[in-house]
Each structure stands twice: as C-alpha cells, then as structure tokens.
C-alpha cells in the first residue's frame, strides 16, 4: 500500500519539559482514514502539529507524500487540507469571501465555492457573514475551507466535537466522500463510535505513546471479549445470562436453557472501541 504519511520515531518535548509525543511510528495509506484516539493531553494535537509542519519532530522523521516534512514544508502544505479544532474564520467576512481568500493562498484564482459549500449544506448561506453562523455552521465551513485545494491528505482535529446531529452527519458525509475521491484522512476524535464508523484503522494514543493501532475489527477481536446474552423467563421473571462465545460448553448451556425455560431473546455482544481503549490504556477518554 502506498504510504502518504510515514512517521518514524517522532517525538516532541515542550520547553517546560513536558514530553507530549514519545518516539511513535505510524503510517497512513492512500484513501485510508486513520482515527487518532486519545484523552486530552495524550499527544494528539502535538502529533497533528508535527504532521502539518507547525512543529518540527525532535527525533526521527516525517515523510508526507514521499517528501520530508522538515525540508519541504511549503510544498507539502500546498497538498494538504487542515480543519483545526479552534474556530479560526474571518467573522467579518462571508463564507464565500473566506473560501475565496483561502483558495487564493494556494494560487487558485476561480475556486468553485458554491460546489464546496454545497458539500456541507451551506450553499444557501454563502453570502452571509460568518458572525451570523451557528457553531455547527462554522464547523462545517471550516471543513469546507480545508477542501478548497482538493487536498491529497485531510487533517481533521475533532471535527464533530459538540456539534448538533445534522452538522455532525454532514461532516461524516464529507469524510466518506473525500475518501472515495482518493484523499487520505487523519482524524483526531474523542468520539469512539464515530471513529469506529469512519476509520479504516484506529490508533490509541496515551501519554505520548501509541498503545495500539489496527483496524477496529482486529482490535475488537484481539482485545474484546465476545459474548452471547440470553434472556429467558423463569417463574414469571425475566432472567439474563452472559456466555462467552469462546466457552467450550456454550452449546450445551444454550440447549439447557431452551429446554427448561421460555426463551425471551438472545444476541451476541461485542466490545466497543471505548471498552478496548480502557482495556489497553487502563483509563478512559475523559
């Protein structure tokens, strides 16, 4: 698989001695969505800043699109799109003006701003000043702005954090469309469910180190315990029993319940990414 991002042994320690990223390595393939998951202060933002050229890794190297980030920052920045967590739009300008200005920084003279705004359902409000936008609309505009140069890699920092369901859905749709277009996506998020739905692979980062990195299915398979939950009626009361799918006598027990009691329902249950994160790192995301 073609690696569009290849980070090898990268680290960053701030001046106050805080080691934010500690010798991590990972890669992202073409058209791949990598979910970067971790609690606050885990090192997600510092990693992102190194990948977009705002900070220089103090060890190792970062290659983006086959070029070394430290020596080709401007060239690489022309090929990527970034949506920051903090809102940073020109509020006294309209959405169209914001997009046109941003496009001009890439040397794009006539960007199709209406098509871009349509992607995030803002085409009807394009002429309005950003100051009049809701939080969700601003976030959608930030995502739209990151698309003006048709980036080969999209960096999204908590894009759906605290958004209404409509805005969050619009952003998820954009991520899927960008993946289909052939773009790779580096997605940092708190939302495990979102990461599970959108990511081809997820990386768990904690205390500056990657604790685990794999596809959601593989992680669930490796770390999660898969169970079968059976509910049945005994003396008019509903009772519940949880059986491990790996247990050797599972078939015998199911048969016992079925023959002795009235079966209410039964279904398999697999671990969530959040369960696995807790299992791997020993702590939750908050």
């Amino acid at each position: 698989m073609e690696k569009v991002i290849n980070a090898e042994n990268i680290s960053y320690t701030y001046k106050k001695g805080v080691k934010a990223v500690d010798n991590i390595s990972f890669h992202i393939g073409k058209s791949e969505v990598l979910g970067f998951l971790g609690p606050n202060g885990a090192g997600k933002s510092t990693t992102l800043k190194m990948l977009i050229g705002f900070l220089n890794s103090q060890t190792g190297k970062i290659d983006i699109l086959g070029k070394n980030m430290a020596h080709n920052t401007d060239e690489i920045q022309a090929e990527i799109g970034v949506c920051f967590e903090e809102k940073n739009l020109y509020e006294d300008m309209s959405a169209i003006e914001n997009l046109k200005f941003h496009a001009s920084l890439y040397g794009i003279k006539r960007p199709d701003v209406n098509a871009i705004l349509k992607k995030v359902d803002l085409d009807k409000r394009g002429k309005d000043k950003v100051a009049s936008y809701s939080k969700g609309m601003r976030q959608r505009l930030m995502v739209a702005r990151s698309l003006v140069n048709k980036p080969k890699i999209l960096f999204l920092d908590e894009p759906t954090d605290g958004l209404d369901p409509v805005s969050a859905k619009a952003i998820r749709k954009v991520i899927r469309e960008e993946k289909e277009r052939g773009a790779s996506v580096f997605l940092t998020t708190h939302d495990m469910l979102e990461a599970d739905k959108l990511s081809d692979r997820v990386a768990f980062i904690d205390k500056g180190k990657i604790a685990a990195i794999d596809t959601p299915d593989n992680l669930k398979h490796e770390y999660g315990k898969r169970t079968l939950k059976i509910r049945y009626q005994e003396n008019g009361q509903v009772k519940e029993e949880e059986l491990s799918l790996e247990a050797k006598d599972i078939g015998k027990r199911i048969e016992e319940i079925r023959s002795q009691y009235k079966l209410h329902d039964m279904h398999t249950e697999e671990a969530t990414l959040e369960d696995i994160f807790i299992q791997v790192t020993g702590r939750g995301l908050e």
Partner: peptide, 14 residues
Amino acid sequence: EQNTVFAILVTPVN
C-alpha cells in the same frame, strides 16, 4: 486572538 493566522500558515504561506 481569532487564530486566523494559523489558517494562513497551514497553507504554503510562511
């Protein structure tokens, strides 16, 4: 204050 400078600096503008 509005962090707009970072939206500029992430483009090829240094």
